[in-house]
Nucleic acid binder design. Structure first.
Lengths: 125, 125
DNA sequence: ATGACGCTCAACCGGATGGTTGAATATGGC
DNA sequence: GCCATATTCAACCATCCGGTTGAGCGTCAT
């Protein structure tokens, strides 16, 4: 129930099987992509606008966005010639839960956090 | 402050700067390493015992353990000729906090969130 | 229709990653 | 001292990753 799933079968069966956790954690392991997620926290953005503050090519940012999309962390909707990027925070939830399973640190547990959010937002987002 | 740090400076300054979050997330992006962490959740283990259920060489596992150690996720204490591996769950805490800052966010009062975190983390053991 | 804009594709590059093998370096037991 | 055990080191390999550049493609404006 609370145990990380692939712990039960380290038998190489899950090799190259691409657990969603793989892609999510790999996606947020890159500082550029974390920065992008932070930007999208504030607002949906077009690809060009996402790329603007970075000192790398548009193509590079486009690749980063593709990786984030594949991980389910953002979604991209094309409107006209502009592609809008939107944060999809739900994708982090499973990863977060996995981490919580190690949660002796129990510093921020989901229950407390959600109570906090409920109090803050007045709804259960 | 409380928000993902590199969000403020996506200016390429943090390139090759090796944010701890980079190493932690990269470490747990690998299913083998996640499985190892799960195993260590139950008990401290010697390197050979960690390697036993996997279908890969001892040297490979040794490398994985080195990566987990560098990320601070485990510690290794040599006793005699045996090196014992111990889970260090605290290393996941910052990563967890970073993730939760995204998880649910819509329009949370960040100041309140910071106070919440301060209160929660204040009593760390 | 032409051209600027927004974005992706394709090819390429250097460096990291994840694995292998075989040798090397302790340490412990007899 | 000698051998087995526990672990790492070193070299090597294939593949992936993050970046570049330049061309290509769809879309909007004139």
């Amino acid at each position: 129930m609370y145990l990380p799933v692939d712990a039960a079968a380290p038998s190489g069966l899950n090799r190259a099987m691409s657990d969603p956790l793989d892609t999510v954690f790999a996606a947020i392991a890159d500082p550029t992509r974390r920065a992008i997620l932070s930007m999208l926290l504030e607002d949906d953005m077009a690809v060009t606008d996402v790329a603007e503050p970075f000192e790398m090519s548009l193509a590079a940012i486009s690749k980063h966005l593709a990786i984030l999309t594949r991980a389910g962390l953002i979604s991209q909707e094309r409107r006209g010639r502009v592609k809008w990027c939107k944060l999809e925070p739900d994708a982090l939830r499973d990863a977060s839960i996995w981490m919580q399973s190690f949660g002796q640190f129990e510093a921020v547990n989901l229950d407390a956090f959600e109570r906090f959010l409920a109090a803050e937002l007045g709804h259960d987002g």
